[in-house]
């Protein structure tokens, strides 16, 4: 049985691409999220309660990024992925690391405390990841596909709840990355693309 393969992808500038944003006016929060630049005026323009709500949402997002990174790390270290699949898994992991860096920076600049990752042993033992059931390269891809889909739907679900509307735009960019991952993984697994419109979210 041949292992799933990805379409040809290039990793060039992926991290830099995440940090670039031309010609869009952003709040201090969004600027901090996207470029790690000094944030100005956020505290003056948002109530503590609203900022606290946004921080809580960002921390949930950060927890998902931690988990995604761990899953890709476990998959990459499993020895079950072919060289091309390993390259793409490593690329996707680097995207999540970019998300993680940006989320940590934003949470800290908003005065919050970024949630820490669990230990790798905890991730390996979690029922959600079900690492012990992974026996093949396809199993690794299916886990990644499931996590990416969950993240897409979670980000879509929280978008209307951001007090800072610019964070919704940032969430949109995160969704685009996760959807790109899900689509590539689905194609690699030989799965069908969704038939109905509005196939993500509720």
């Amino acid at each position: 049985m041949t292992q799933a393969s990805f379409p040809r992808l290039t990793a060039a500038d992926s991290r830099r691409g995440f940090l670039k944003l031309g010609g869009v006016a952003l709040s201090g929060t969004a600027v901090a999220l996207l470029g790690g630049l000094p944030m100005r005026g956020f505290a003056a323009s948002h109530s503590d309660a609203k900022a606290s709500g946004d921080i809580a949402i960002l921390n949930v997002a950060l927890g998902l990024e931690h988990e995604g990174i761990a899953a890709y790390e476990i998959g990459a270290g499993s020895g079950l992925l072919s060289k091309p699949l390993l390259a793409v898994a490593t690329l996707f992991k680097s995207h999540h690391e970019g998300h993680r860096t940006a989320l940590i920076g934003a949470i800290e600049k908003m005065g919050g405390t970024p949630v820490q990752p669990k230990s790798m042993d905890d991730y390996k033992a979690s029922e959600k990841l079900s690492i012990s059931s992974i026996k093949t390269g396809d199993d690794v891809l299916r886990l990644a596909q499931r996590l990416e889909l969950g993240a897409v739907n979670a980000y879509i679900g929280v978008m209307p709840s951001f007090a800072d509307r610019n964070l919704a735009q940032v969430a949109g960019r995160l969704i685009a990355d996760e959807t790109m991952h899900w689509t590539a993984l689905t194609q690699a697994l030989g799965g069908s693309l969704p038939t109905p419109a509005f196939s993500f979210g509720a």
Partner: peptide, 16 residues
């Protein structure tokens, strides 16, 4: 549940 709730919830473990 897996697609929409699974990012934060599971049947067996507390998560987000």
């Amino acid at each position: 549940y897996a697609a929409r709730c699974g990012a934060c919830h599971s049947v067996a473990d507390n998560g987000a």
